[in-house]
Nucleic acid binder design. Structure first.
Length: 202
DNA sequence: GTATGGATTGTC
DNA sequence: ACAATCCATACT
């Protein structure tokens, strides 16, 4: 499998968001690699998007990376407890990114289980297995993605996304989650997910 | 220097 | 339905 090139992330953010579905997120974790298929994303399209952290080109220490060329990781802490991971998209200075909201765990399940619940995979009940990576905070905990990964170049060997032949699925579309403060932007249907995949968030 | 609130989650 | 938890951001 091949790493996605920087040009993959360059296009229209809505289109890139849909094309990210089915791809494989990889985090090198000590000796092994933790991997999951991207099954749910949300697009945040930059200066004109009231839900985007870069609305009106707001440039702060936190949002700085979103003004980079595409293909970098934007990781931030939410509610004092959870990290969320985004992929910077579009053109340099556009301030657009895609939030990765859910993964289907593929490899490194044992380590993923320990990261999430502090115990071995075989000790988990069925509910816990379903909940390993079906949310933006959960998947970061599971793959050990933290502020350490802020600004990581996805062309590198630490955190990156792989192309995969997987493409035979229907794409579901909806409004984005938990952005009620964003006025008219709250109704934009910029959440995309793989229909019927059990790891899409609730 | 101080106050505020969130692109969530787990538990009640 | 609601608390947990903390740091970046936005005030004074």
């Amino acid at each position: 499998m091949k790493k996605l090139s920087r040009s993959f992330y360059e296009g229209d953010t809505i289109e890139v968001a849909k094309r990210l579905l089915g791809k494989i997120l990889v985090h090198s974790h000590r000796d092994s690699q933790l991997m999951g298929r991207i099954v749910e994303v949300e697009a945040y399209v930059g200066a004109v998007d009231k839900a985007c952290h870069c609305y009106k080109n707001k440039r702060t220490k936190r949002t700085e990376i979103m003004f980079n060329p595409p293909g970098y990781a934007y990781v931030y802490l939410i509610y004092g407890m959870y990290y969320c991971m985004n992929v910077v998209t579009g053109r340099e200075n556009e301030g657009a990114a895609i939030l990765i909201r859910a993964l289907e765990p593929l490899e490194g399940l044992e380590q993923i289980s320990v990261n999430r619940y502090g115990k071995s995979l075989k000790e988990l009940n069925k509910g816990q297995i379903k909940n390993l990576t079906n949310g933006p905070g959960k998947l970061c905990k599971a793959l050990d993605i933290t502020k350490e990964n802020y600004g990581d170049d996805l062309m590198g060997d630490k955190l990156f996304i792989l192309e995969d032949g997987y493409s035979s699925f229907d794409i579901g579309i909806s409004k984005r989650i938990n952005i009620d403060y964003a006025e008219e932007a709250r109704d934009f249907e910029w959440r995309f997910f793989i229909k019927d995949n059990p790891y899409v968030s609730k």
